[in-house]
Design a binder for these strands. Structure first.
Length: 284
DNA sequence: TTCCAGGACCCTG
DNA sequence: CAGGGTCATGGA
């Protein structure tokens, strides 16, 4: 099944291969990834995105939602580029979008991100999917269902190479499998949802904000990590020894309702070595 | 060999 | 509360 989405200024490279998603790979000029129980191949054209569902099924609406096609991107850019620091990153990172991925998958993925490298996270998620997901077509695997991860022992989950994060993943999967916890967050303000998320074993302030930003479309939330702190210090001259909630307020004070978008641009630029001083680190 | 990676937990003071 | 050790794993 093929779909075409008319959209301007959408960079698949910067979006699908960024630090928000872990299951996309570049194949020539196209990008292949697993979304839900389907395998999707996306290609950019001058007029928009050509999406080919090569295995499994997914509705056009869900694809559109996942890719955030209906986002008022020009408005986002207009607001965040009022800050000269962000405006400068737009030259290199224009077309970067924030996706709307599944809360459960984002929760587990970012729990796995603790003290981990993006390269390893991608590998570990792939391994979990291969071991405990369902095969889709030829050697593609869905993200393992919560009931399955919840049923693993700490020893078993080590086979995926997740290390000390295994117990956190199992615990979170149990919560998701046994309750409507993730759905209930939709009814909460971001701050309340943040507090709920940090109540989970293995979920701290930063990971909670990753889930809110990348799965719940809370575009004002800023995941404050080591990179964000470097940006605070080097770009904005802000003291980053304060507690997390103060830094969150500070970041939102600068960029308001699109603070998450703004700092994502800064994060990607910093990680690519285009923003901060010092040696450019290549992370792929 | 040592250090680090999109941190969080736990124990001390 | 603030500070430091610890936690698996793989790549540089």
């Amino acid at each position: 099944m093929k779909h075409f989405f008319q959209v301007k200024n959408y960079s698949l490279e910067r979006t699908l291969l960024s630090g928000q998603a872990f299951r996309w790979n570049k194949l020539g000029s196209k990008y292949v990834g697993v979304v839900g129980n389907s395998v999707v191949k996306v290609e950019g054209t001058p007029a928009g995105l050509s999406v080919d569902v090569i295995e499994g099924e997914i509705s056009r609406d869900l694809l559109s939602h996942y890719l955030a096609i209906d986002e008022d991107y020009e408005k986002v850019l207009a607001e965040i580029s009022e800050d000269i620091n962000v405006k400068k990153t737009l030259e290199d990172f224009s077309g970067y979008r924030i996706l709307r991925q599944e809360p459960y998958e984002m929760l587990i993925s970012f729990i796995d991100s603790a003290n981990n490298s993006i390269r390893n996270i991608r590998g570990q998620i792939e391994k979990m999917s291969k071991l405990w997901g369902e095969e889709i077509g030829d050697s593609y695997y869905s993200f393992p269902r919560p009931e399955v991860l919840a049923g693993l022992t700490e020893k078993e989950i080590m086979k995926a190479g997740v290390g000390f994060r295994g117990k956190y993943i199992i615990s979170a999967a149990k919560c998701v499998a046994d309750s409507n916890f993730l759905d209930s967050l939709n009814d909460l303000e971001s701050q309340a949802a943040h507090e709920e998320l940090t109540g989970l074993y293995g979920v701290g302030d930063k990971i909670a904000d990753c889930v809110l930003l990348f799965a719940y479309n809370r575009l004002e939330r800023v995941p404050i990590d080591v990179w964000t702190k470097r940006i605070f210090g080097q770009i904005y001259g802000i003291d980053c020894s304060t507690k997390y909630s103060e830094q969150q307020s500070c970041a939102q004070g600068i960029h308001k309702k699109y603070a998450g978008y703004a700092f994502s641009f800064l994060f990607e630029a910093a990680r690519a070595g285009n923003l901060l001083g010092g040696s450019p680190e290549e992370n792929f």
